[in-house]
Design a protein around this nucleic acid. Structure first.
Lengths: 336, 336
DNA sequence: GTGCGACGTCGTAGATGGTGACCACCCGTG
DNA sequence: CACGGGTGGTCACCATCTACGACGTCGCAC
């Protein structure tokens, strides 16, 4: 591997001058600069970021730790982060914690060990100590999608409670009365807030919140499927006439369960899901969803991180983005 | 940030001894080792991977450069890579080249600069020089999904030609005669091989390959949509009765175009897509696809990379995995 | 019991590649 | 000739690893 010294020798200057040419924040005689540039090209020199990072005590890498790369919600967000990061001169490395706190811990340790410039994380765990570690080490963190209690960082969330409320209220408006909820894991703020929104909408309509109509699952397709199956099995006497599913993959799972069992949607059971679903227009019936501005969540998070790197001591910013109900066929009550 | 010297001082030993305890491949007096471990715990020491990477001239990071994170095909593959990498002691960082050769170049430069241990790449460009750079620098590369001509690396592909052939032949078997093809970018091996398979199936059935029924698009949803629109517009006199779409997102796009225009699938135009599509069972009609073993592609690629790191001089391995036709409703000819 | 050699363990010091503060030098100008 | 601004070289430093050498201990032989 060719080093800066090889370049210096080849160009007949000192290594420091090569470094100056490479970084460009100090003036160098154009003649020498030219010789250096030639030497770099001829030798095929590429600077060693590892050595550079060690000396400068900083890197240009951002770690983005998402809880499920296979969920289109997160990949769209990543695109938003990337676009901002690249234009700010940073590179994004994506880490998939797979809803697994242990993997998440490992990636945080790696981010710390590699002295990454910053971290954007959608926490898979409600534990706060790993993130605390990052902050103690002076590594800026932006928390997205999921709130982390008891810790003060820049945050970008969406209005989960309100989104769930309008989604559920829409079902109420349509005349459904036994509205079930497939909620997420109890320890995730997104899950509890969406469950709260569901409850609020029911109470606002004077409807009871029946525990028999609420299931907690894991935000995965399989979990949604099983929750739906359990809702149908356990309420055979008085089945739900509608379901509010707290994320996209669980909505899919619930749909698959109903298709498999021949439950007609929406005439027997209507459904509204949280999170947009790719090609929702092709699914029959088309799915009513509470859409989040996923790309925008990523973009804002990246902007916050860039700003924090510029001024580390500013007060944490909390951004809450709005959701929007997109009404399609799956939630429309058949007119008798 | 606490360094190995701080630990050494605290434990009353030399930094070298701390290093030995940390790495564990040299014997150290258990008493000293214990003191070191205590000091590490008390001070909250975390070793600086940057310095370590510099000194050892190696890292434990793999760069996985995919051409589109938003395509479920790639994310599933990434999971396969991850699972192997983690169990082999490596961490995976995911880079999204977004089908953009320039971004790809940047990420390769970053992988090189950061001296990553290895790279798994699904090339967005047919240019070979960037990958050549990696190889010259001694960084092992595994190419996946797309062939890179004129370069010798470990490779994991699927049998694109055969997959396309059985997909198209299935349409022929169903009695369709004007079978169009929405092909991918001309410079991607996956695209040309699938187009070849399409042609082969037609010729085997004694059908002509009509250029008016072939469109090249960009493997994106939008591209599939536009290609379908163009196929319908330009062949208004004698429209295609079936379409073979060369990847998942373009299949979706083509479907959306047909839904929008009220073209009935499969009675007016049937469709078969390459690549599985998530929740294909929920789409109406359900989609016939040529499925690839995506997770397995990732797993095998990771295994090859791990093996290459162990023995860098072994001959390159080429793995070709089979595809399988999954027949659903979108390709079934209505019986008159 | 003493001396010597072997072995095991630890510390010292140099190396890894690059950066930047500091200093010396050159040249132009007053 | 003195002064100063601009340039380039020297060298210390970033945090860690490891080759080498030193030292202590133990065993064995005389």
């Amino acid at each position: 591997m060719v080093t800066i010294y090889d370049v210096a020798r080849h160009a007949g200057v000192s290594a420091a001058t090569v470094s100056r040419v490479l970084n460009g924040h100090v003036k160098v005689d154009p003649v020498l600069a030219g010789r250096v540039a030639d030497a770099v090209a001829q030798l095929g020199y590429r600077r060693n970021a590892v050595a550079r990072n060690l000396r400068t005590r900083q890197t240009t890498l951002w770690a983005v730790i998402v809880s499920d790369v296979e969920n289109p919600f997160f990949t769209s967000m990543v695109r938003g982060i990337e676009d901002v990061a690249l234009s700010a001169g940073y590179s994004v490395v994506l880490c998939n914690s797979d809803e697994n706190p242990e993997k998440e811990s490992n990636y945080i340790a790696a981010a710390l060990a590699e002295r990454m410039a910053g971290v954007v994380i959608s926490p898979s765990s409600h534990r706060v100590d790993d993130v605390e570690l990052l902050l103690q080490a002076g590594c800026p963190v932006v928390v997205i999608d999921r709130e982390l209690a008891g810790i003060s960082t820049d945050t970008v969330l969406v209005d989960n409670e309100h989104g769930a409320q309008i989604g559920t209220a829409h079902l109420v408006d349509q005349g459904f009365r036994r509205i079930a909820c497939i909620a997420g894991p109890r320890w995730l703020s997104t899950a509890t807030q969406r469950l709260d929104g569901y409850g609020k909408a029911l109470r606002a309509a004077g409807l009871p919140v029946d525990p028999a109509l609420v299931r907690h699952a894991d935000f995965r397709e399989r979990g949604g499927y099983e929750a739906m199956a359990s809702l149908l099995d356990d309420n055979a006497a008085a089945p739900p006439d509608a379901v509010f599913a707290a994320n996209n993959l669980m909505t899919i799972g619930a749909m698959e369960c109903m298709v498999e069992r021949g439950v007609a949607v929406p005439s027997e059971v209507a459904i509204v899901g949280f999170d947009a679903i790719p090609w929702a227009d092709l699914i029959r019936p088309t799915l009513t969803t509470v859409a989040q501005p996923t790309y925008e969540v990523g973009r804002r998070a990246a902007q916050l991180l860039a700003k924090r790197l510029a001024s580390p001591t500013a007060d944490p910013t909390h951004v809450v983005l709005p959701t929007a109900l997109q009404i399609r066929a799956s939630s429309i009550r058949a007119t008798d």
